[in-house]
C-alpha cells in the first residue's frame, strides 16, 4: 500500500494547511491519492514528499487565482528581512483556540509556513527550498504573518495575557 494510515493523516493535515478547512482538505487528499496511484508501482522513492508536491500543485490549479495561490507573496527580499527568520515566530504565544478561530482567515501560504515551521520544524531556508520559493519571499511572509497574528489577537491576547 502506497500510503498507510499515519501517512494519510499527515497528508490530510498538510491539505488542511493548504485549504484552510476540513472539507477542502478531504477533497484535496482524495484527489492527490488518486493521482499518486496512477504512477507506476515503485516509481516513487518518497511517496509522501511526492504527494505533498502533487497536492500543492493541485491546490494551485484548483484555486486558479493568484490571490488564493500559495505561490503569491512578496517576491522581494528587503535587507531588513535578512534579520528575520522563523525565530521571530518562536516568541509568539497564542492559544490553540484562538489559532483555530483565525486559521481559515490566514492565507494558504501563511498556513503552509506555519505547517512546515511547526510540524516539520523547518527553517525559513528549508521552507523556501521545499516550496521552490526564494528565501526572501518566505521571510517577507513570516514578517507579515507575525504582524497579522499581532493584529488578529492583539486585543484578545492582551486580555488573556497572551504575549505577542
Amino acid at each position: 500500500m502506497l500510503f498507510d494510515r499515519d501517512m494519510l493523516n499527515r497528508l490530510y493535515r498538510y491539505a488542511y494547511a493548504l485549504s484552510g478547512d476540513e472539507p477542502g482538505a478531504g477533497d484535496l487528499l482524495q484527489d492527490t491519492v488518486e493521482r499518486c496511484l496512477q504512477r507506476p508501482p515503485g516509481a516513487l522513492a518518497c511517496p509522501e514528499a511526492y504527494a505533498r508536491r502533487v497536492m500543492r500543485n493541485r491546490y494551485i490549479d484548483i484555486t486558479r487565482r493568484r490571490k488564493a495561490s500559495p505561490e503569491t507573496g512578496d517576491a522581494h527580499a528587503d535587507a531588513e528581512l535578512l534579520a528575520i527568520d522563523t525565530h521571530c515566530l518562536e516568541s509568539l504565544t497564542v492559544s490553540r483556540d484562538m489559532l483555530q478561530q483565525a486559521w481559515s482567515r490566514l492565507d494558504a501560504f501563511e498556513r503552509e509556513i506555519l505547517y512546515y515551521w511547526a510540524v516539520e520544524d523547518m527553517t525559513a531556508a528549508q521552507i523556501a527550498s521545499t516550496l521552490g520559493s526564494r528565501r526572501g519571499t518566505v521571510l517577507a511572509r513570516i514578517h507579515r504573518l507575525r504582524a497579522r497574528l499581532r493584529a488578529e489577537f492583539g486585543d484578545d491576547a492582551a486580555a488573556q495575557g497572551v504575549k505577542l
Binding site: 490530510y12 493535515r13 488542511y16 494547511a17 476540513e22 482538505a25 515566530l89 518562536e90 509568539l92 504565544t93 497564542v94 492559544s95 490553540r96 484562538m98 489559532l99 483555530q100 486559521w103 506555519l114 505547517y115 515551521w117 511547526a118 510540524v119 497574528l149 495575557g161 497572551v162 504575549k163
Partner: peptide
C-alpha cells in the same frame, strides 16, 4: 503561556 508552535501542532494534530 501557550506557545504558537505548540498551538499550531496541537491544532493540526486535532485534525
Amino acid at each position: 503561556k501557550p506557545n504558537l508552535k505548540q498551538s499550531v501542532i496541537e491544532h493540526l494534530e486535532s485534525v
